[in-house]
Design a protein around this nucleic acid. Structure first.
Lengths: 244, 244
DNA sequence: CGAATCTTTGAATCCTCTCAAGTCTTGTGG
DNA sequence: CCACAAGACTTGAGAGGATTCAAAGATTCG
């Protein structure tokens, strides 16, 4: 099995037949943080791990839902189709975040959005019955799941507000700062860029307008190219612009 | 008792000491729809009903939370204070909607937003222990509550998207159409207007820009004044503008 | 290397903002 | 019931952004 819900470029990288939760680098940050890996080993074995290439789809809007997806690395956008057929990004899931959780809580049968990787992304696929299994013997876990959901909704509504108020410069600085991955933070602050078109979709402007601002950032050396789709950030200056 | 959480103009209009759930006109539309009014009469008696004057506050951000609020009539905005001290409307609750539900599900102790009536509004205050009581003897009700929460979040994210994409004309047409209250719908389609400043906050522009567009709508007779804060709508034309 | 895709840039136009001055409403108090 | 004051709304003009359309220039990946 090298493919999952995605139509393209999704590779199963599950370690020895199941995800290695015990040694997972981001476990302390996700909604499974408080789950006892030894006690629930049999359940956690059902978690599989996938690598999604940039632009590949994790799940499709309206497709049947039977699992949630934890982002281990990378970035995923969730977009909805509007009545006029156009799409709009309604949420962005970063490292440690979960996509599709609402379908589990709502007993929904289908995903509400299409999830697409904005960067090369690693994801753990957690089937519903893993969560259900943990809840059955540990009802308090339900609260942890709810809490996580709430946290996400808060975060995403804040993101929508941040990305849609203030000048375009400010908004784009916010988008760029979002790309900074705390876990991968290093002295140089090298970031994987997302396509200009996605930045445009996030901020609600045209890609030309985004390009003009990003070009200006480059000229001012707030951004410096360091490799394919890689940039060095002047974090301090970007934060100054974002908050001004 | 004539005041509640609000600092101004909130009148208890509870009927004979408790809300008259059995004859409530909107019960079929809210999250309590499936609750057996006879079986839970003792609990539902704890629900009280209030009338909030325009601009009065239903609850304050960060204040202790012990109840959820069902909007029976009118319109309520939920706003959050941003880091720079400014506020932004993050959700609008219409007839049949619930405010504050997230604090219940999350076991949160405080409200995340400030809720302010945009029109003269009637609200049922449902204490936590009413919901808890129903869930205790009818665990499936929990799912109904979750479903309602999900429905709300969906609706509000869609609203945020609608109000922040497209031309200002389109966005304002969407805002106006939101004011149409299905339950009060009549041939003339008379609507209670909300202040221009709030329309500006919803669409993320200045009040002058809103005023220019609204004035143009009036000149084109898409809107016609019919009383204090009352307008007749040309619904068909407004929908055309909203979707174009 | 080369083709496809993404990005940059220009110029004219349109839209929104700002600041400022007026006008209209509304609800209150006489 | 009317007049008035406070607040809400309207309108103008100039400046600044963002959009559109079009064309050229880079990047990336096979």
């Amino acid at each position: 099995m090298t493919k999952n819900h995605s139509s393209i470029k999704c590779i199963d990288i599950t370690y020895e037949g199941h995800a290695d939760c015990q040694h997972c680098a981001i476990r302390q940050n996700d909604f499974l943080a408080d789950v006892d890996v030894v006690k629930y080993e049999h359940l956690l074995k059902k978690i599989s791990q996938f690598s999604y290439a940039k632009k590949s789809t994790v799940f499709f809007e309206k497709s049947p839902a039977d699992a949630v997806f934890v982002v281990r690395k990378g970035l995923v956008k969730l977009e909805e189709t509007l009545s006029d057929g156009s799409t709009r990004i309604v949420r962005v899931v970063r490292q440690g975040g979960v996509a599709g959780l609402e379908t589990f809580l709502d007993n929904g049968q289908r995903y509400d959005q299409t999830a697409i990787a904005l960067q090369d992304t690693e994801i753990c696929r957690v089937p519903y019955n893993v969560i259900k299994g943990v809840i059955t013997s540990d009802p308090d876990f339900y609260k942890a799941v709810l809490k996580e959901w709430h946290r996400q909704i808060e975060a995403s509504s804040r993101v929508v507000v941040e990305f849609s108020t203030g000048s375009l410069k400010q908004r784009l600085a916010c988008v760029l700062l979002m790309l900074i991955n705390e876990a991968n933070r290093n002295a140089l602050l090298e970031i994987e860029m997302i396509p200009i078109e996605d930045m445009a979709a996030l901020t609600g402007v045209t890609k030309e307008s985004v390009s003009r601002v990003i070009s200006e950032f480059k000229r001012c050396e707030l951004l410096t190219k360091s490799g394919p789709h890689k940039m060095l950030f002047d974090e301090v200056s970007l934060r100054k612009i974002a908050e001004k």
